[in-house]
Design a binder for these strands. Structure first.
Ligand SMILES: Nc1ccn([C@H]2C[C@H](O)[C@@H](COP(=O)(O)OP(=O)(O)OP(=O)(O)O)O2)c(=O)n1
Ligand SMILES: [Mg+2]
Ligand SMILES: [Mn+2]
Length: 418
DNA sequence: TCTACAGCTA
DNA sequence: ACGTAGCTGTAGAT
């Protein structure tokens, strides 16, 4: 074929023929299988939220002094910054105007009642329009199930993506979000959902690739780095970390290892600029292998024009030598991130192929992938057997210098299984 | 139909 | 100038 010489030259044979090609059929099966969604439950939620949104809308008009399209950032900007003369914060990305995003509104909420109402409105309308109302429309008439597309050739790192609907960004963070997740359910009363999610996956891969001794030891001692960072940021005991704290710390951990600036960290945490600078410095000093890896990966990209994952997935980075500072720095962060995120993608793809093969004669079905998570429609009588297949498949997909761990849960819906 | 903004997820 | 990887809904311009 026309691909053969290239595959040969770039040593892509294993990745292509043993992973990407076999994965095609796994994904096709998952898409065809689909997932059951409780449309009646979402319909009820929709009607409740409609009422709440209408109520907030009235309050917003009162506070604003007039009616306007709340969904319009332009119109909202005029109300806030011209009519009410509230102080502006940042400009928007393409600097067409003043930002009205959640960070800005949260600050303004301290000096006026309107921003708080806008925030409530935004939360409800986002969840209603994107999930509660949109997903039931995509229930297939013949199967009664929702069939996403898993796209294999979109994400530059080797991750999958999911469209129509995107089932890789179903809410989980807020209470209403969690109620939405409950709408994803097993096929019938003989089934439950089984969810398996890699523990701290990209940090473990980072430990392997960087060879950082402190990080490797931490994982060999079964430590939770996300919880540790939470304890440090919040000055709390590591045994008293709430899910919200761990979630914020997770964001901070990945931000740091993927090259966040002190300014950036100060924007996304409670830390001020000085504290953020200290925190990053302390972090990289504790794990010296990480800083070395960052420099090495950038150097490799400069010299070779590409970076690669553990299974030799290649991403070209022509902009790594750009004379434009901003363009070059962006490429440098990609050089740091892609080998890690891409290796995690390699790992779960191997797991999916292995697991799918072993499930050939079972009633349970693999139905969703969410980057480092697999969801199964599990027949009740296969619980023990499936659990073993999934755990082994995920934890043994690629052997690392540190333990690879999958957290597994079972439940009557996606929320309670996770 | 396209871009900008905003916000959801890993 | 400012962690990376995605997708989608709405406004507003074309
Ligand atoms: N803000 C985020 C969240 C996640 N990820 C990447 C790195 C994670 O390792 C991976 C999987 O996301 P999870 O939410 O499953 O996070 P972890 O696997 O790291 O932690 P946990 O042990 O909670 O599953 O996605 C990221 O780059 N940035
Ligand atoms: Mg996950
Ligand atoms: Mn995980």
């Amino acid at each position: 074929s026309v691909l053969a010489p290239k595959i040969d030259e770039l040593k892509l044979h294993n990745l292509y023929y043993n992973i990407e090609v076999p994965l095609i059929r796994v994904l096709a099966t998952m898409e065809e299988e689909g997932v059951k969604v409780d449309a009646d439950y979402l319909g009820k939620m929709s009607r409740e939220m409609e009422g709440q949104i209408n109520k907030i809308t009235t309050d917003i008009y009162t506070e604003a002094g007039r009616e306007f399209n709340i969904n319009s950032t332009q119109q909202l900007s005029k109300i806030l910054f011209e009519d009410l003369k509230l102080p502006t914060r940042g400009k928007t990305a393409k600097k067409t105007g003043y930002s009205t995003d959640v960070k800005v509104l949260e600050e303004l909420a301290e000096i006026h009642d309107l921003p708080k109402l806008i925030l409530e409105y935004r939360q409800l309308s986002k969840l209603k329009s994107t999930y509660i109302d949109a997903i039931p429309k995509l229930i297939n008439k013949e199967t009664g199930r929702v069939h996403t597309s898993f796209n294999q050739t979109i994400a530059a790192t080797g991750r999958l993506s999911s469209t129509e609907p995107n089932l890789q960004n179903i809410p989980i963070r807020t209470e209403i979000g969690r109620q939405i997740r409950k709408a994803f359910i097993p096929r019938d009363e003989n089934h439950l959902l089984l969810v398996a999610d890699y523990s701290q996956v990209e940090l473990r891969i980072l430990a392997h690739i960087t060879n950082d001794k402190t990080l490797i030891n931490a994982f060999r001692n079964n430590e939770d780095i996300h919880a540790r960072t939470a304890a440090e940021v919040y000055g709390a005991d590591i045994n008293n970390i709430t899910p919200q704290m761990r979630r914020a710390a997770k964001t901070a951990n990945f931000a740091i290892i993927y090259g966040v600036s002190a300014y950036g960290l100060s924007q996304q945490t409670e830390l001020d600029l000085g504290q953020s600078k200290d925190f990053i410095e302390t972090y990289l000093a504790r794990y010296p292998g990480i800083k070395e890896y960052m420099d090495d990966s950038i150097k490799f990209a400069r010299e070779n024009g590409y970076v690669k994952t553990l299974l030799n997935r290649i991403r070209y980075l022509p902009e790594i030598n750009s004379k434009n500072f901003q363009v070059r720095q962006f490429a440098e962060r990609i050089a740091i991130n892609t080998p890690i995120q891409g290796t995690a993608a390699d790992m779960i793809k191997v797991a999916m192929i292995t697991i799918h093969k072993k499930m050939k004669n079972m009633k349970s079905k693999m139905i969703l992938q969410v980057h480092d998570e697999l969801v199964f429609d599990m027949h009740n009588e296969e619980s023990k057997k499936l659990q073993k297949i999934v755990r082994d498949g995920m934890e043994k997909a690629i052997k690392l210098k540190v333990p690879v761990v999958a957290d597994i849960g079972v439940g009557p819906n996606w929320l309670e299984a996770k």
